[in-house]
């Protein structure tokens, strides 16, 4: 956690992420590439981000399916964060955000710091408008993939075993 913040919603989000065992880093648009480069495990893939930022060189943007299968990190945008749960709302895109957030062992969602909402109903309200209007699909993701079916809690069942949230100040 790089920057201290006075925004209570944002600090709640950071606390919730910490409770989930999820790392988080706050960064600016200018420093984004450098910050991300420190976070990703190679090989890393990503989908185009709807923010005014540039990917660092090591990340393969718009990967092939074979790139995706080899990747250790997937970087995708998150439309919103949910402060009290530490959740991120991951929109499905025709660039394959759903796959990129799901297959690699480390998922790095990027969310604008201004898009952290206090609670789930607010996020679902916004999702609802887009679902009705644009047939949007999304995933509310809270921490890494997990299972308790093998006798005790294990992180990384079918999805990522770790999540590192990047909060972006634009």
């Amino acid at each position: 956690m790089a920057t201290t913040t006075t925004n209570p919603t944002l600090s709640t989000f950071e606390e919730s992420l910490a409770d989930l065992g999820v790392d988080s880093t706050r960064t600016t648009a200018e420093a984004f590439g450098e910050t991300l480069a420190d976070i990703v495990r190679d090989p890393a893939v990503g989908v185009p981000l709807p923010f005014d930022v540039e990917y660092p060189e090591g990340v393969t943007v718009d990967p092939t399916p074979a790139d995706l299968e080899r990747a250790a990190t997937g970087v995708t945008p998150a439309s919103y964060g949910v402060a009290n749960y530490g959740s991120v709302l991951l929109p499905t895109t025709d660039t394959g955000a759903e796959l990129v957030s799901l297959y690699p062992t480390l998922h790095v969602p990027v969310v604008r710091a201004d898009d952290i909402l206090p609670d789930l109903p607010e996020a679902i309200d916004r999702f609802g408008d887009a679902a009705r209007g644009e047939d949007l699909s999304a995933v509310v993701a809270t921490g890494p993939s997990a299972t308790a079916d093998m006798g005790e809690l294990v992180l990384g069942a079918h999805g990522p075993e770790a999540v590192h949230v990047v909060m972006l100040d634009e």
Partner: peptide, 18 residues
């Protein structure tokens, strides 16, 4: 509080086939 994933799918989804 919440499980790891709540998929909100409005199919057919836009995700490219792989």
């Amino acid at each position: 509080d919440l499980t790891a994933y709540v998929s909100l799918l409005t199919p057919p989804v836009d995700t490219p086939t792989v």
